[in-house]
Design a protein around this nucleic acid. Structure first.
Lengths: 199, 199
DNA sequence: ATAAAATGCTAACAAATGTTAGCGTGAATT
DNA sequence: AATTCACGCTAACATTTGTTAGCATTTTAT
């Protein structure tokens, strides 16, 4: 009988999805049951279906919302004039880090659990991810041509960047957290200029 | 009736664990059923229990074997005399990359699925992972003190390194694979010296 | 050759899974 | 005040889950 309390500006569906994102992150999509989710929402499992149509739909919403978010941003960055390749890379990195700090649960889930999507969503997500990586690779290749970036294998650089950023997961769990901006600066610096001290 | 074919030098249990690692990687631990595993092994689900005692045990074996492997290596590196901090970091990185290339399934599973361990194994794994990261952080801090490494936040550097390496997963899936050694060189170079071309 | 051990099978189990049906109640709309 | 709609509940469903029991057969050791 106790209704789902929705936050101001949000539907009850949003509440469910937010709680689901948290559980999917903690236990994974497959290991999270609808009864589990219901309990955290404060309702019986069957009641969830007044707001969502299936467990799969929840994952879809999380994944595609996040993916669109990143895709929009990179298009914006790429379209901005007068930016060096390094600046573009920095902007992309900082956006990733900020997203990881602000929308931790959803970004994390979307990155780790998208494999549990089912077709046609699965194929769709796969090509979106491929396209996204390809765009970053292009920026890097542009930088290499212009002599700003050293001639390394661009796809390798992309996967290092993206996975490095996803490491913020560990930061989230860590007790002695350093501040978000410090973290951001450190990550960008290490990726752009490396660990070694230059003489 | 068809028996599990074991490879030379390996028990049937090893075969099961190898197949399990592959499935756990592809679908995740929770989404892989024992019947699923049995089918890939070529046997009925119940027959698996002549070789293993539970699904959980399979995950335990994969995770702890891998963890011990990494722990042994870092102890060895750390004990080697006449090595600069940068050289130690490079050795650790190269070992990670090599492990990821040679024992892909198990390393990947152990990194992504250890959360599904149950206590006491879960706690045990958590502290092993913490200890491992701490050791790397110490190497970095040593390097900072000696002026080889720029003064960045060591835990941040560790998480970047480790997650960057786990990005080889994408490389594995990629069609146009570059050679293993080239990948290794690229990764080490990017992490140690960064993306930016030095003037 | 015979006993013991290893390994496979079928059948079955209890529990957990996602989901639907149908009903009741309070809030919103007419 | 009457009606509709939103949203919660309980009960139930068909599958799927990990696992065990019991038996048959093959392999190994005596």
């Amino acid at each position: 009988m106790a209704k789902i309390k929705r936050n101001r500006n949000g539907t009850r569906k949003d509440v469910i999805i937010a709680k689901a994102a948290k559980l999917f992150r903690e236990k994974g999509f497959s290991a999270t049951s609808m009864r589990d989710l219901a309990e955290h929402v404060g309702v019986e499992a069957a009641s969830l279906y007044n707001h969502i149509s299936s467990k799969a739909e929840i994952l879809q919403e999380i994944c595609f919302k996040t993916a669109n978010n990143f895709m929009s941003h990179i298009e914006e960055v790429d379209a901005t004039p007068n930016k060096t390749a390094i600046e573009k890379i920095q902007a992309i990195l900082r956006f990733h880090i900020k997203q990881m700090l602000d929308n931790y649960e959803e970004v994390y889930v979307s990155d780790r659990e998208w494999k549990h999507l089912t077709d046609p969503y699965l194929s769709n997500m796969q090509s979106q991810r491929r396209a996204y990586r390809q765009r970053i690779a292009s920026v890097i290749e542009e930088g290499i041509r212009k002599g700003e970036i050293k001639p390394i294998d661009a796809p390798t650089a992309v996967l290092i960047m993206l996975h490095a950023v996803s490491g913020i997961e560990s930061w989230h769990r860590s007790k002695k957290k350093i501040a978000g901006e410090v973290l951001e600066d450190n990550m960008v610096q290490i990726l752009v200029d490396g660990l070694r001290k230059q003489a």
